[in-house]
Amino acid sequence: MHLHFYENATETVLLIFLIITFLQSGIDKIKDWKGNLSWLIGHFSKSPFKNSVPLLLGIITVVEMAAGILALIGLVHLLLFDHKDFALYAALVSCLALLMLFIGQRINKDYEGAKTIVIYLIPSVFLLFLLQ
């Protein structure tokens, strides 16, 4: 069986980056739900999101897990079959997750936190660009 690594080396590295980023983040949110929720309630206590933190945490957890799982499936399909559809879906969902986090930080006026999210958004957008 031929692995399509060399033909897709950049995409492969970026997908591994997304797998690590989103599966780690999603699993951490699931394993330490109470700790994450407690911190976020305090973080967003003076924002328009203050009454929606549990719902929004659930939504972002689902989106992050979806991004990580799609990236994993996309990596397998890319390496084994040279198919890019799932990798493209992973890039799109990753960008959606990061934009959700970004808008939360901007509305909360946490500009340093927003800048940090942009660091993750750049490789996600680059992957999206490569896959189109």
Rank of each mutant, 00 (worst) to 15 (best):
L55K: 11
L101K: 00
F102R: 01
M65P: 01
I59D: 06
L80Q: 13
G74S: 06
L75G: 01
V93E: 06
I60R: 05
E64P: 05
L79G: 11
G74H: 02
L78S: 03
H77R: 12
S94N: 02
L99S: 08
H77Y: 14
E64L: 03
L101M: 14
L56R: 03
F102K: 01
L56N: 01
A71T: 01
L78A: 07
C95A: 15
L75H: 06
S94P: 03
A90Y: 13
L88E: 05
H83Q: 09
L96M: 15
T61N: 09
F86H: 09
N51T: 15
H77K: 15
L70G: 08
L75N: 02
L98R: 05
L80N: 05
V62G: 00
L80E: 13
A71P: 06
V93P: 01
A66H: 04
A90W: 15
H83W: 07
G68S: 01
L57I: 09
L55S: 11
I103Y: 14
E64A: 02
E64V: 01
L96N: 03
H83R: 05
K50L: 01
R106A: 14
M100P: 00
L92N: 15
C95N: 12
A67Y: 09
V93Q: 01
C95R: 00
D82T: 02
C95S: 07
V53A: 12
K84V: 10
V76T: 13
M65D: 04
L79I: 08
L56Q: 06
K84G: 06
K50F: 14
T61V: 07
L70I: 01
I59T: 12
A97E: 04
K50G: 03
A87S: 15
F86L: 05
D82R: 03
L75S: 05
L92H: 13
I103C: 10
C95P: 00
L75V: 06
N51A: 13
A67M: 07
G104M: 07
G74F: 00
L55N: 08
P54R: 03
A90G: 15
